[in-house]
Nucleic acid binder design. Structure first.
Lengths: 244, 244
DNA sequence: ATTTAGTGTGTATTTTTTACACAGTGCAAA
DNA sequence: TTTGCACTGTGTAAAAAATACACACTAAAT
């Protein structure tokens, strides 16, 4: 395989939804001194990696996501590029780089992607490192400038969620209206009236009612719906507009 | 001064508005064979340049814009990064590179910015190359993948224009309501009812009516208004929403 | 049989959006 | 000095969309 490009990286903010909260997938960053056994670094980072010289950025991002999640077609969106001259400046980050990128010390520009994945499908695997979901409002300490990157990703996600039908990427194929409502409430940080929400959603032609009900719940089972991209493309008006 | 980073560039889509149309500033790309005097390349490109190793991307973008336009504080927005492995692939582009970047032949990732500038203030200057405004719907042939970059910039601009008060960056400090209307119509490609537009704008508290009138027009002079960012920041609701 | 935790439904009120026409001003040209 | 031109400035009624709001029903678990 060909060489990586040393000064360009990709950082991927992987969002998932467990019907309760919005979550982000993070990778543990741990560094232990060989001799003293002292823990020098123990925090978390986004999923980041370099691209190969003969590889498109989108392709690279998709490749890694496939590897981590086991899912083929993942929704992926480039949202911002971070290239400040001193973006990696604190001691831990320098230390980490010293141990890993010994050969390269100039600035690294990183292109931010976020991806939306259906939590019910994912099977985590990232061999050697510890990988974990964290609730968006209960994050651990993040390394590098990844807090800043994550915040920007969240902003872009919220923006997009209001104007395009991307919420369904975070839901299973069949979902109930209140699962959808909770998703919008959690991400946008708002609360909607249940009846009005339902009314609005039901007049979207591309939300297809199914002849099926939820199973495995200990209360009245709700009807399931599916999102149809074909119908959406045919019937979409100028913009989605999720005001409510 | 320090060295440039060879594989990262910035391309800037500079928008201006002349009260009639949305325009883009382009630079002529001309290559003439020394011996045969044959014109090998003659087309146009966005304003592009490299960044220095010790310079932030935003700073670099602002620096160049200042140089070209003579204006200090220019509205600048990063909108997308283009890094396809084969983004520069056609013959003219390769030829151009051969003549200019002889020393470097790997892929260049370019970070796209767009800037909005008040046409009435600008004084063009880019020493050695020919620089010109083009109407957005009457563009010449563009070099590299700059048509794609421009299109993406336009999309982002439209998006932002609907949700944030950035249109004023393209207008002089004092403007009339119908200048503002034409701006929105041109960029969004819509047409608004004059009375409803005015009604909507007048209920925005941050559009301040001035005690002044337009001059130099050969019809009834219209009242002038100004945008107040302070009032906007104080009174803004969740989002701007330019639906009409 | 009761509790629990959710589903499913309709209407009236308010707000926002839309559609639409005519008189007035100021300059320029005859 | 008159007339034409090109634009400014103004209000109302009708339609559509958003909001507020409460009760009966279901299925499982105890």
């Amino acid at each position: 395989m060909s060489k990586i490009i040393p000064n360009i990286s990709i950082d991927c903010v992987i969002f998932g939804f467990d019907f309760k909260q919005l979550n982000v997938l993070l990778v543990e960053r741990k560094l232990i001194d060989k001799d003293s056994k002292q823990v020098l670094i123990d925090d978390w980072t986004l999923v980041g990696y370099h691209i190969y010289e003969d590889e498109d950025m989108d392709t690279a991002a998709a490749r890694i996501l496939r590897k981590i999640s086991g899912i083929e077609d993942i929704y992926l969106e480039q949202f911002y590029t971070f290239g400040d001259e001193n973006r990696i400046k604190n001691e831990k980050d320098k230390l980490w780089h010293k141990h890993h990128n010994k050969h390269f010390k100039s600035r690294v520009v990183t292109v931010g992607y976020y991806s939306l994945i259906d939590n019910t499908k994912v099977k985590l695997s990232l061999s050697d490192r510890n990988v974990k979901w964290f609730a968006i409002d209960d994050l651990p300490e993040l390394g590098f400038d990844h807090k800043k990157i994550l915040d920007k990703a969240l902003d872009s996600l919220r923006d997009k969620l209001r104007n395009q039908p991307i919420g369904f990427e975070l839901l299973p194929e069949k979902f109930t209206i209140s699962q959808m409502q909770r998703l919008y409430e959690e991400i946008l940080g708002t609360r909607f009236d249940r009846r009005n929400f339902r009314k609005k959603v039901l007049q979207m032609k591309y939300i297809i009612p199914l002849d099926e009900k939820q199973t495995g719940v200990k209360h009245k089972a709700a009807q399931l719906f599916a999102f149809s991209r074909e119908v959406y493309e045919k019937t979409k008006t100028e913009r989605f507009d999720f005001t409510i």
